[in-house]
């Protein structure tokens, strides 16, 4: 596939209070951005676990976005700080799996930042287009099975 007609599949986890609201505001402001990402709402970004991210890649996502409230703004006090730590860890793990950690992106988008949400979508899609499709190359991302 040439990078021209490669349309990345992106899973975007958005927290209910800020980022999902920011995405709503992008709509109200009629921002335009590429339709590549499919949004999954969670109450707080801290809900997103490594399994969700790895499953996304395993199922064919070329990239994953986790977006929450700005540090200090989390509706659940400090959920986004936990997200920050988890994201670091996940990036390391991706690197170990041979997946470019750039394919996982963490963003803070507030409910007033419709423009920023659109810009993130735009940039991220572009960036992944350049990286090309994710080739898992037989890497198994499935979590360990429960005994």
């Amino acid at each position: 596939m040439s990078s021209e007609d490669f349309e990345p599949e992106i899973i975007a986890f958005l927290c209910n209070w800020c980022s999902y609201a920011g995405a709503d505001l992008a709509g109200v402001s009629r921002e335009q951005y590429p339709p590549n990402a499919l949004n999954i709402k969670v109450m707080c970004s801290s809900r997103v676990s490594p399994e969700h991210v790895f499953e996304s890649f395993h199922e064919g996502a070329d990239a994953v976005l986790i977006s929450g409230c700005h540090p200090g703004d989390c509706h659940y006090i400090d959920g986004n700080y936990k997200t920050m730590r988890k994201a670091e860890l996940m990036k390391k793990m991706l690197d170990d799996f041979g997946i470019n950690p750039q394919r996982l992106r963490l963003e803070w988008v507030s409910s007033a930042e419709g423009g920023k949400f659109a810009k993130v979508m735009e940039e991220f899609t572009e960036e992944i287009k350049e990286l090309g499709p994710l080739d898992l190359n037989g890497t198994s991302l499935e979590g360990e099975n429960d005994e």
Partner: peptide
């Protein structure tokens, strides 16, 4: 209901209702 406990439980013993692993998956 933030769900942060569900995301860190190494034994998958915690579910957040309405946002459980099965639903998200």
């Amino acid at each position: 209901g933030c769900g942060s406990c569900a995301s860190v439980c190494p034994s998958n013993a915690i579910t957040q209702k309405g946002f459980d692993d099965d639903q998200i998956s």
